[in-house]
Design a protein around this nucleic acid. Structure first.
Lengths: 179, 179, 179, 179
DNA sequence: AATGAATGAGCATTCATTCAT
DNA sequence: AATGAATGAATGCTCATTCAT
């Protein structure tokens, strides 16, 4: 656990549960029980359950983008960078504690008018899109960023629906063709 | 309203609300109020709210597949059939009452262990995948079915996240390239 | 208990507690506990705690006005009618289970903007004012209605503050003078 | 702000909020936020929220009595003194920031057994009663003190219920008659 | 086949107060 | 003297489901 024990214990527990069970299915009571803190302590740090969700999305967004950038940085060739990202997705989606994309999972639970939260999700996705753009800039193919990002999310959602590895590999194959 | 007034009135109302508001956000009370039926009548036709969701997914699955098949049938050339499907998606996602894919929306709301409902969703998606396979069989390209279906869902989820038309057009462009 | 057991049990219990403890000091939980009904049953009959308060004020308003009218009806002479009302107040305020005027007690608990509830209270008070007017009409002294009603409420609030019998008797004495 | 900055800032803020919003409707958090002090500082100066209420009632009691005495002192004739008090009430109740009598407002919010606080309220009211007695002593009419004080409170509560100016004027008219 | 009343378990949130620093 | 983090208990309210008629 990190500094500011109580606050972080709350965020960590909430993040774990929001991810595994979904936002609506996770009650405040379960969060405080598993975090071992008082209910009022949670509300001292977060004005509402929605604020807690925002904290989860923000933290995971930073983490995820850093991880993807790190993966790309391990290669020099733009095409290799791109394919490495899909290989990373392959490893990720095959983990036992993988329950789908943190952001897409939440996206479908939100009411249409949750602008603030939808923006947090869109921001993380735009960062992925931008990452593909940066990778492809040196070879003047930054126009492919949209296509690669769409394959990225297509792979994630199809993997979620089918609980199977073929979508990520299929996305990788298409990526290889179009670059 | 269709035959079997009460039952269909319930399914129609529930479908409309599940789609627009989501499953968890739609309460039994709202359904019976707007359907104009008694609460016990609902439970006479459906054992649980989940059963009602199953009925919604089943009906929409049949409808959606029929619509896609009809679109494909308007063309002779396999490639034209495929592109027509993406053009259909473009029109669909631009409608005012479009709130995302019926099935992907629900998928993220379900608990991990809802096997029965996840199967209903997967079935509809497998039908789309099979449709692409049938379309491409005459030109011996049925292996592309997985790729096209992944673009299909990628377009839908990316459109949902960004609330914009570019993902469908991007998916169509990739499809055109790979066929 | 009256017909419609559950609903009336709720209103009766809430009325008793609102009167004895005040509105804000009485929680929903205490009401359902003492009424012996489920929480959801309360909310089936009343949309909110405020609705329950409205029911209490409405019922007590009818009761109180009927009681006052009955007292006045026992006399023929207008002056006797008026004095009988103050005598009734004397008896009332000396009862063991008297905790002040149902309506004035609530009036000071309400937020300034509770128009609906304030109107219910004002209505009951206007009925008292009107009763004095009717009583005095035969002797062409209906202009005294405001004065008598003000003595009426002055007696009640002063009795509440001092927990003593003198205010009612003082009000009666003034009434006797001015008629 | 007055001397002893912190303590007085707390009392001033609490007084303003207790008066405008009521005692129960005013939370400790709002008080410390608007007073700009720490929560623990409040509890260093006051053992409980109730203590803060006691301070409010005590201060306002002193203020109010001084104001009434000052009004009476501006006249020589006892009858004029009394009528001036009702004229003062008329001005007071017509102010924009008038929300009813400080003391009667609180009286109805208190649990039946709050002897200490009820005594503070009763004390202020007894002071008003005594003031009328002193005024009328020179003309040997001190027996009217109870009657005038009852008109005083009757005017205040009736004004509160009806949100109108007539009760104060009605009380003044009665006062004029009976002196 | 159809109903409306009734329910237990749960929801997110706020309260006045205390404690370690 | 002053603080901000932490708390247990209570708040009003909603959920999907069942039952007697």
């Amino acid at each position: 656990m990190r500094k500011g024990t109580v606050r972080n214990q709350i965020v960590d527990t909430a993040s774990r549960l929001f991810y595994k069970q979904g936002y609506n299915a996770t009650g405040i009571n379960q969060i405080i029980d598993e975090a071992g803190v008082a209910k009022a302590s949670l509300y001292q740090h977060f004005h509402s359950k929605e604020d807690l969700l925002a904290a989860y999305l923000t933290e995971k967004g930073i983490e995820t983008n850093a991880a993807l950038k790190a993966v790309a940085d391990q290669h020099k060739n733009p095409k290799e960078k791109v394919l490495a990202i899909f290989d990373f997705l392959d490893k990720l989606t095959n983990q036992n504690d993988y329950y789908g994309c943190n952001f897409l999972n939440i996206a479908s639970e939100l009411p249409v008018d949750s602008t603030r939260l939808r923006n947090l999700i869109r921001k993380q996705k735009d960062d992925v899109r931008a990452l593909f753009g940066e990778i492809l800039k040196p070879v003047k193919k930054e126009k492919l960023a949209d296509e690669l990002y769409m394959l990225f999310d297509g792979a994630l959602i199809t993997n979620k629906v089918h609980g199977s590895g073929w979508p990520v590999q299929t996305a990788r194959r298409i990526a290889e063709k179009i670059i």
